[in-house]
C-alpha cells in the first residue's frame, strides 16, 4: 500500500472537530486541496460527530465554491481504520484530481491574488454567527423541525445556507471595502461586480446595524465608510 508523498496529515479526534474556517484557513495558507477523512456513518467512534463533520465540510466547500474556488479542492471521505486500501485509493484519486486542476488559482474561477482576497471574505463569513447558527441547527431542522415544528429537507437547508452565504460574503466584502476608505454604492457595485440595488441593500443594512456611516457626498452620490467604534465593539 503506497500513496503520494504530497499529502500531509493533521490528526484530530473526530471529523466533528473540523471547523469550517480550518478549511478556508488552509487555502489562505496555500493548500491546493483539503481532504477531511473520518469514520463511516453509523460507525463513528464519536457516535454522530461525523454527521456534523460532513455538514461543516459541506458549508466550507459551498462558501469557497461561491467565491470562486474549484469545489473539487474540498473532499469529505469516509473509511474505517481497517480499510487501508480504501484510504489509499481516496488519497490517490484526490491527488489525481488536484493535479488535473493545478495549483491554487489555476482551474479556479479567479486568478491567485483575487481568489485569495475572496477566500479571506469567505473565511470571515464562515467564522460568523449567521452561517454557523444555521449549520448548528441543520440536524435539528432536518430531523425534528424548527420551533414551529416545520421540518426541512437537507436540500432546503442547503438552499437556505446558499442564500445566507451570498448575503454574508457580500456583507463582509463591502465591509472590507468601506474599511479601505469612503466609497459610493456605484463604485462598490463595479468593484464587487454586484448590481447597485443589491449593494445598496447591504450598505443600508450595515448602516442600520451601526457598522457603516455616511462619510460625505461625491457629486450626487453619498459616500460610506466603516463605523469603527461599532465594529470594534461587536
Amino acid at each position: 500500500m503506497q500513496y503520494t508523498t504530497d499529502a500531509r496529515i493533521i490528526r484530530i479526534m473526530c471529523t466533528g472537530r473540523v471547523d469550517p474556517t480550518m478549511i478556508s484557513d488552509a487555502f489562505l495558507k496555500g493548500a491546493d486541496g483539503v481532504m477531511v477523512v473520518g469514520c463511516h456513518f453509523g460507525d463513528c467512534h464519536y457516535i454522530t460527530g461525523n454527521y456534523q463533520g460532513k455538514i461543516k465540510v459541506g458549508i466550507a466547500a459551498r462558501a469557497l465554491d461561491y467565491v470562486g474556488l474549484n469545489p473539487k479542492r474540498v473532499f469529505f471521505g469516509q473509511c474505517s481504520s481497517a480499510e487501508g486500501e480504501r484510504f489509499v485509493k481516496m488519497v490517490t484519486d484526490f491527488d489525481k484530481d488536484i493535479r488535473e486542476i493545478g495549483p491554487l488559482g489555476t482551474g479556479d474561477r479567479l486568478p491567485p491574488p483575487q481568489l485569495h482576497e475572496k477566500i479571506e471574505v469567505a473565511h470571515t463569513a464562515l467564522a460568523k454567527e449567521k452561517i454557523r447558527w444555521v449549520v448548528g441547527k441543520f440536524t435539528e431542522f432536518t430531523t425534528k423541525g424548527n420551533k414551529y415544528g416545520e421540518r426541512f429537507t437537507e436540500h432546503e437547508m442547503w438552499r437556505t445556507l446558499d442564500t445566507i452565504v451570498m448575503d454574508e460574503v457580500a456583507t463582509y466584502e463591502i465591509m472590507r471595502e468601506l474599511n479601505r476608505g469612503p466609497v459610493s454604492v456605484k463604485t462598490l457595485s463595479s468593484r464587487l461586480k454586484l448590481p447597485s440595488a443589491h449593494v445598496l441593500k447591504y450598505v443600508l443594512a450595515l448602516q442600520r446595524r451601526g457598522f457603516a456611516e455616511l462619510a460625505g457626498i461625491e457629486g450626487t452620490s453619498p459616500l460610506y465608510r466603516i463605523a469603527r467604534q461599532q465594529v470594534d465593539a461587536a
Binding site: 484530530i12 479526534m13 473526530c14 466533528g16 472537530r17 473540523v18 471547523d19 469550517p20 464519536y46 454522530t48 460527530g49 456534523q52 463533520g53 461543516k56 467564522a127 460568523k128 454567527e129 454557523r132 447558527w133 449549520v135 448548528g136
Partner: peptide, 18 residues
Amino acid sequence: CKGCGVCAATCYQHALSI
C-alpha cells in the same frame, strides 16, 4: 466529554476549545 470537538467547531462565539 469524549473530546470529539463538535461543540468547538460549532460555537459562533468561539467560546469553547478542545
